[in-house]
């Protein structure tokens, strides 16, 4: 069933891609092929392979139980927040928080997770910023 849904999704993606390709504005100075042809070829392959996937599905993959799925989704949310928070809070604080969260969710006890989080953050800061001179996001506190 997953493969059928995936195939239909792929087919819609291919149709959308082809549709978007048709709306590309051609420049008055164009080569013989133009900017549309290659995307249209790609859309055709995408569509055909999706159709095959939908018509001849593989065995069902093991999807995680709802709780594990929530786990993955919340990790995505935390990472997205991290990306947004990075320029605001600065590298060390944002990274320590995100790494603590991930370590906690992977099964560390809370104290261990905090130690891992801050250790990771300060370790990366020292190695990459202080030693190697990579510029990391600066927060209001200067780090």
């Amino acid at each position: 069933m997953s493969d059928r849904i995936f195939g239909i999704f792929g087919l819609l993606l291919a149709i959308g891609f082809a549709f978007a390709a048709f709306t590309i504005e051609e420049s008055f100075l164009s080569d013989a092929v133009g900017p549309k042809a290659f995307p249209l070829i790609v859309a055709t392959i995408l569509g055909l392979s999706s159709l095959v996937i939908a018509l001849r599905p593989d065995a069902e993959p093991d999807w995680p139980a709802l709780r594990r799925l929530v786990e993955v989704v919340s990790a995505v949310v935390v990472m997205a927040l991290y990306a947004k928070l990075l320029p605001v809070a600065g590298f060390v604080i944002a990274t320590a928080l995100a790494a603590t969260y991930l370590s906690w969710r992977l099964g560390s006890p809370l104290v261990g997770a905090i130690a891992t989080g801050f250790g990771t953050s300060i370790g990366i800061y020292v190695v990459f910023h202080l030693v190697l001179g990579l510029s990391l996001a600066r927060g209001p506190l200067g780090f």
Binding site: G107, G112, I124, L134
Partner: peptide
């Protein structure tokens, strides 16, 4: 254990791309 390793992997990936 991966519970220490994986956060490091994730954060180093972020640092690299942000860099």
């Amino acid at each position: 254990p991966p519970r220490i390793l994986m956060p490091i992997v994730a954060m180093v990936s972020f640092v690299g791309i942000y860099g």
